[in-house]
C-alpha cells in the first residue's frame, strides 16, 4: 500500500521506523567486531546506508527515526554513551532522502537510484553539518575545526558508503517489494 502523504505515520511507519532504527543500531555495534575499510582518519561505516535507505523506501519520518533512534541504540550497545546532537544529525541523514520517497516508482530504476543517492548525500551533508556545527556551541571549537575535525571525515566516509551500498540495497528491496500483497 502506497501512502499518498509522505508525512503520514501509521502502524506500518511505526514498525519500519523501529526496524530501521534497530538495524542501524545493531549494524553500528556489530561492525565494531569486523575490520572496516579506512583511509587515513576516515572510517567507512556500512551501517549508514540504513537510515538513507529507510528514508527512500518508507518516507522522511521513518528515515529520521531510523537514523536518530538507531544512532542512540548503536551508541548504547557499544557503550559510547549518548550524544544527542549526533543522533539528531543522523536523523537528518534519514529524513532528507525521505523527501524523495513519494516520487519512487521502481527501486531498480536507474534514474530513481541516482536521485536517491543525490538526496542521501544531501542528507549526509546536512546531517553531519548540523552535528558538527552544534559542536561549535557545545565544545567551543572554531568553524574550521568543526569542518576539518568532524564534518569532513564523517561526511566523506558516509557519502562514499551510501553511494556504493544504497543501489545494492534498493535493487534487493525491489525484489522483496514485488512479493508483498498489499
Amino acid at each position: 500500500m502506497k501512502d499518498s502523504n509522505m508525512w503520514s505515520f501509521g502502524t506500518r511507519q511505526v514498525v519500519y521506523a523501529a526496524i530501521g532504527a534497530a538495524l542501524y543500531g545493531v549494524f553500528s555495534w556489530a561492525t565494531n567486531f569486523i575490520p572496516l575499510p579506512s583511509v587515513g582518519n576516515v572510517t567507512f561505516r556500512p551501517a549508514v546506508v540504513i537510515p538513507a535507505f529507510f528514508g527512500v523506501a518508507f518516507g522522511p519520518l521513518v528515515g529520521f527515526l531510523a537514523g536518530g533512534i538507531g544512532n542512540v541504540l548503536g551508541d548504547f550497545l557499544s557503550g559510547w554513551g549518548f550524544f544527542w546532537n549526533w543522533s539528531l544529525g543522523n536523523g537528518l541523514m534519514g529524513l532528507i532522502p525521505g523527501l524523495m520517497a513519494a516520487s519512487v516508482v521502481s527501486f531498480k530504476d536507474r534514474g530513481t537510484i541516482t536521485k536517491a543517492i543525490m538526496y542521501a548525500i544531501g542528507g549526509v551533508v546536512v546531517g553531519m553539518l548540523f552535528a558538527s556545527l552544534t559542536e561549535m556551541f557545545t565544545s567551543g571549537i572554531d568553524i574550521s575545526t568543526a569542518l576539518v575535525g568532524y564534518f569532513t571525515p564523517a561526511a566523506i566516509g558516509n557519502a562514499i558508503v551510501i553511494a556504493v551500498l544504497l543501489p545494492i540495497v534498493m535493487v534487493a528491496y525491489d525484489a522483496v517489494a514485488a512479493r508483498s500483497g498489499r
Partner: peptide, 24 residues
Amino acid sequence: LITQIRRVAPLIVPVVMNAIVNGE
C-alpha cells in the same frame, strides 16, 4: 575501497530484507 565496501552486502542485505518481510 569500493570493493571493500561492497563486500559487506552479503552480510547486511539478507538481514535487512528479512526484517522488512517480517515487518509486514
